[in-house]
Design a protein around this nucleic acid. Structure first.
Lengths: 230, 230
DNA sequence: ACCACAGTATGGTCAGACCATATCGAAGCC
DNA sequence: GGCTTCGATATGGTCTGACCATACTGTGGT
């Protein structure tokens, strides 16, 4: 018995690579749009194999930090991006599939976010053109899928109007990962006129700059859409 | 000119592998704790190279869906997990570093979540022992770092008490990614007695089952901790 | 019953090859 | 001069096969 060895979570090579890249981002002040060195040259610089660099890239890509293009030229290679929402979407979708999260929890979260976003959008007097466009799209929809498409756009536009990109990203991910259930809900409901009235009420409240009314309108809207969970 | 080729987002091999694994999880009803086939045998089954399987594994690991152990035996290999929060933490940390998210947005989000969680915990009459423990830890703390450690535990316990695991996971990630700023804030503040009073007020409101008071107490607490952002 | 040790399945890493793609650049043509 | 054409080249994507470190498994000896 040497000692009580701490379970020294050994660090794998690709984790080092991630840390190095992260450090370089911080030190060099890199931002979205900037290019990273090519995989082969990164591997050489860091003294590791290309496989390890690639695994690091997969992780960063998964987290929405880089995006890889093949080919040659200024746009090729690994480019820094800023897409937190795609990562969040994958994460929620997988964990809903794994049943490590329940639909109820996702919808509760959505209600919380959407009340906040609506109130914030109303008090900020944000641009409402995106909301109106989505509303028109819903009117023109000829199927539940199409309706949900524009419904999603409406709610994401609401989140965008709040001016908080993190909230908007979470909203987008919640909607994307719930798309299947949303289509089911609309199909079950059949008549979408009550939803249309809700949307108009939300839009009117935001335009009027009435945060409380906007939040309440959103809450009642979600209760209409998912009656079984209220 | 053949036609106006749609940019057929080609699917990479490792993405197929992810989809296959995801399908298997859904079809076989796999859940956290179950084992996935070994990398080599997965590669053979799917007719791809081990590299591609490994890249898929890195992605799934990043999303908190699997965890890999070396060695041999029942616990070795890729095991399904359910850790959405580690993935969220990495995501927020990287995007804060990339400046694709501003601290202001993170703190606003935290305020939204924490108000909701406090209100929910109060109305649900949840267990408050975790909160009390964290409070005692803060009293015993001898450094800003240690104080923040228990402060984080307090706020995470509050989120846990809300009963929503997604909210709790987001809360944990927000706190982890903000740790640096929290230590700065406490150091700048110097005296933590006002924070202690806030915490006790929150705890009392939750115990009394008063959602509105709990939410207000949390809001004022955050205003005290980050006066520059209110 | 216990212990020591070889066997083996696992993930981790590496080197090197080849492919598909997209740009760049020079040569040739008008 | 401006245009097209086509080869050179740099990039990510994939595969193969090897070797290492780790940790359990089973066997054989005590």
């Amino acid at each position: 018995m040497v000692a009580d060895w701490q379970p020294v979570r050994r660090t794998r090579t690709f984790e080092d690579v991630i840390a190095q890249i992260e450090r370089r981002i911080a030190e060099d002040g890199l931002k979205a749009g900037d290019r990273l060195p090519a995989e082969r040259s990164l591997a050489e610089q860091l003294g590791v194999s290309r496989s390890s660099v690639r695994e690091a890239m997969r992780v960063l890509e998964t987290l929405g930090v880089v995006s890889s293009q093949v080919g040659r030229g200024p746009d090729a290679g690994a480019v820094l991006t800023a897409r937190p929402d795609t990562a969040l979407t994958d994460l929620l979708r997988l964990h809903l599939g794994l049943a490590s999260l329940e639909l109820r929890e996702v919808i509760d979260t959505r209600l919380m976010i959407e009340r906040w976003a609506a109130a914030r959008a109303a008090s900020a007097g944000s641009d409402t053109s995106g909301l109106a466009t989505a509303l028109a799209g819903m009117d023109a929809a000829t199927s539940a899928e199409e309706f949900v498409e524009h419904d999603t756009a409406f709610h994401c536009a609401l989140a965008d109007a709040s001016g908080n990109r993190l909230i908007a990203a979470i909203m987008r991910s919640l909607r994307d990962s719930m798309r299947r259930y949303a289509v089911e809900a609309v199909t079950r409901l059949g008549d979408t006129s009550v939803l249309r009235a809700d949307h108009e009420r939300i839009l009117a409240a935001v335009r009027a700059g009435d945060p409380d009314e906007a939040a309440n309108a959103v809450a009642e809207h979600l209760a209409h859409a998912y009656p079984s969970l209220s």
